[in-house]
């Protein structure tokens, strides 16, 4: 199972979601945080660090600690959130590479399946099993597609508040 973690600022409300999918991209777990609206005083005191602090310390770490399925790897679309845990990796599309898994550097990989290549960056190395799981999922779905579902789900959560 692979986790997808995203924190969004929707209408000045910060909310995050953790979607865990199986090898077919089918949801196994979805946890979201109640939206947090910083006060003006908090915005002043935290200054430019506010968004990063809220994303990592307040929302991402709380979401990860409450996960029941505990995925071996969690992918995120925000490079800052990589700091939340060792198994959190930023994922982005990259230029086409030779199919397969390539270790670029410590905690950095390129995973290429037919038609799509992705760059993963984190703070530690991933096991071969986990890398193969990601490669396998990339052959079934666009690895960034679950972020679209997360975004829509979080927009729904905020609209309901």
């Amino acid at each position: 199972m692979i986790g997808y973690l995203s924190v969004k600022n929707i209408g000045n409300k910060f909310t995050g979601g953790l979607l865990v999918v199986d090898q077919n991209g089918i949801p196994q777990e979805f946890k979201y945080s109640e939206p947090v609206t910083p006060t003006k005083l908090q915005r002043i005191i935290y200054g430019k660090a506010l968004e990063k602090y809220l994303s990592i310390e307040v929302i991402a770490k709380t979401l990860l600690s409450k996960s029941e399925t505990r995925p071996a790897v969690v992918l995120t679309d925000d490079v800052n959130i990589v700091e939340a845990a060792d198994n959190v990796f930023h994922i982005s599309k990259t230029a086409s590479e030779k199919e397969g898994i390539k270790r670029v550097d410590e905690g950095e990989y390129v995973i290429a399946s037919p038609g799509s290549s992705y760059r993963l960056m984190g703070n530690s190395d991933l096991s071969e099993d986990v890398l193969n799981d990601i490669l396998s999922l990339s052959e079934s779905i666009d690895l960034l597609e679950p972020f679209q579902r997360l975004q829509k789900a979080l927009e729904y959560v905020c609209s309901e508040q």
């Binding site: 909310t15 979601g17 949801p27 777990e29 979805f30 946890k31 979201y32 945080s33 109640e34 939206p35 947090v36 910083p38 006060t39 005083l41 908090q42 005191i45 935290y46 602090y53 809220l54 310390e57 307040v58 929302i59 709380t62 979401l63 409450k66 789900a153 729904y156 959560v157």
Partner: peptide, 14 residues
């Protein structure tokens, strides 16, 4: 100015 940890909810039905 402490941020209280937000409530975490399950939303598999969304």
């Amino acid at each position: 100015i402490k941020f209280v940890s937000p409530e975490i909810r399950s939303g598999e039905n969304i």
